[in-house]
Simulated scan of single mutants.
Amino acid sequence: MVKVYRSTILPAPIEAVWDILRDFNGHDRWHPAIADSQIERGNPADRVSAVRRFRLTDGAELREQLLTLSDMETSFSYCLLETPVPLLNYVAHVRLAPVTDGDWTFWEWESRFDTPRGQEDALAALVGDDIYQAGFDAIRAEMGLEAA
């Protein structure tokens, strides 16, 4: 099993960051890899079990399901249902925590998944760099924050 973990600190209040990340169908507005996204069956984006179908800028289509969402813990988790990339049994968790010294936000994004033998390092780098780190950078840009 592969585990990917990335974290960052954003110079913004947790409420402002959570307001953007909480929208399970909002990633197409800020993540550079996402071309468009929609929630299937007209369900609300914050309903646990909601499924988002989205297209990447390279044309690939994916489906992910919201597994948990907690406003109290400023966290959510989701899994991949369909993907052209062999990320098997992929489950990810996003958590925010307040950094009280300066009213900043600590953001961690992690996942675990299986993959065909020999592809572990390449797929861990893809997830960690092209998804998570690119997401951190995109939120900074979306919020007008300085780069880390």
Rank of each mutant, 00 (worst) to 15 (best):
P84F: 03
T100I: 10
Q65R: 15
M1F: 07
I139P: 07
F24A: 07
E64G: 02
A92R: 06
R47N: 10
L87D: 07
W107K: 00
H31G: 08
V2C: 14
S77M: 04
L145A: 10
K3R: 15
N43R: 15
F24Q: 07
W109E: 12
Q133E: 13
Y5W: 07
A134E: 07
L56Q: 12
T105P: 02
S37L: 13
L66Q: 02
T74H: 14
R22I: 10
R53S: 11
E40T: 07
R112F: 11
G135P: 03
A138I: 08
A134T: 07
A141G: 09
A148R: 15
L62T: 01
L80S: 10
N25M: 07
V17Y: 05
S49K: 14
A12L: 14
V2Q: 13
D130N: 13
D36V: 03
D71V: 02
L80W: 04
W104L: 09
P86Y: 12
I14T: 12
E82C: 00
R63G: 00
R53K: 11
I9C: 09
E82F: 01
D121P: 02
L66V: 05
F113T: 07
R140S: 12
A35I: 02
K3E: 15
H31E: 08
F24R: 11
V85C: 01
L21Q: 09
A60P: 00
E82M: 00
V48M: 05
F24V: 09
D23L: 07
R63C: 06
H31L: 07
V99T: 09
G128N: 10
P44G: 01
Y78C: 06
V91T: 14
Q65E: 12
G42M: 05
L87K: 03
P13G: 13
A141K: 14
N43F: 03
I20R: 08
D58E: 05
Q119P: 01
W107I: 12
P84A: 09
